[in-house]
């Protein structure tokens, strides 16, 4: 899809190859972790290493997306491409709006519940009701935060994927699926 055949300029190529090397190093390290600790067999090792691996992955993706953006700006932008970018921005705004609506609805429901007079014949129940309200605030915050992070992650992955498709062979990220030969059975 939208593969390009143009080559990057030498100066950019050098900068790009340096950044790609950093990203590749991160990938190689991560792959090494994976190979020495396959998911189904050494989960404990993986869990310990997950934080640096995930953040390393995020950094690598950001680096490669920056390089790919520069390449696209230099060689591949046209009205259609700008249009697609605009569409992506619009989708992000829509999703954010939806998230904010859900967030506000959550607070409205919490407010309603707080205002309701409830029966409590024991101190235990009264205390439990108060703690329930506190717990609900916590849940609202957790939901909002995780939803925002999910959207952020979605934007990053989607943008990197979109760049990969636009640039084809010029992209810094591997985009194509696992080679099928790998699953060939005798």
């Amino acid at each position: 899809m939208n593969e390009m055949t143009i080559l990057p300029a030498p100066a950019e190529q050098t900068a790009a190859s340096r950044a790609t090397a950093v990203a590749t190093a991160a990938v190689t390290a991560a792959e090494a972790v994976q190979k020495t600790a396959p998911a189904a067999r050494a989960a404990a090792v993986q869990d310990t290493l997950k934080m640096p691996v995930l953040f390393g992955g995020w950094a690598a993706r950001s680096a490669t997306s920056s390089i790919d953006t520069a390449r696209l700006l230099a060689f591949g932008m046209d009205l259609h491409t700008w249009g697609e970018l605009f569409q992506m921005q619009q989708a992000v705004v829509e999703r954010l709006t939806l998230q904010q609506q859900t967030w506000m609805q959550g607070w409205a429901a919490w407010n309603r519940e707080r205002a309701e007079i409830r029966g409590a014949n024991t101190v235990t129940k009264l205390v439990e009701q108060e703690f329930n309200l506190v717990a609900q605030i916590g849940q609202l915050l957790i939901d909002q935060t995780t939803n925002l992070i999910a959207l952020q992650e979605n934007i990053e992955v989607s943008y990197a994927y979109w760049l990969n498709q636009k640039l084809g062979a010029l992209s810094s990220t591997p985009g194509v699926q696992t080679p099928v030969a790998a699953v060939a059975r005798t």
Partner: peptide
């Protein structure tokens, strides 16, 4: 398996591709 480049680890890349693509 749409986008192997989503993350350095294959299992992360496939989960992220699943969720977001």
């Amino acid at each position: 398996e749409s986008f192997r480049g989503a993350a350095p680890l294959a299992e992360d890349a496939y989960v992220q591709s699943a969720e977001y693509i």
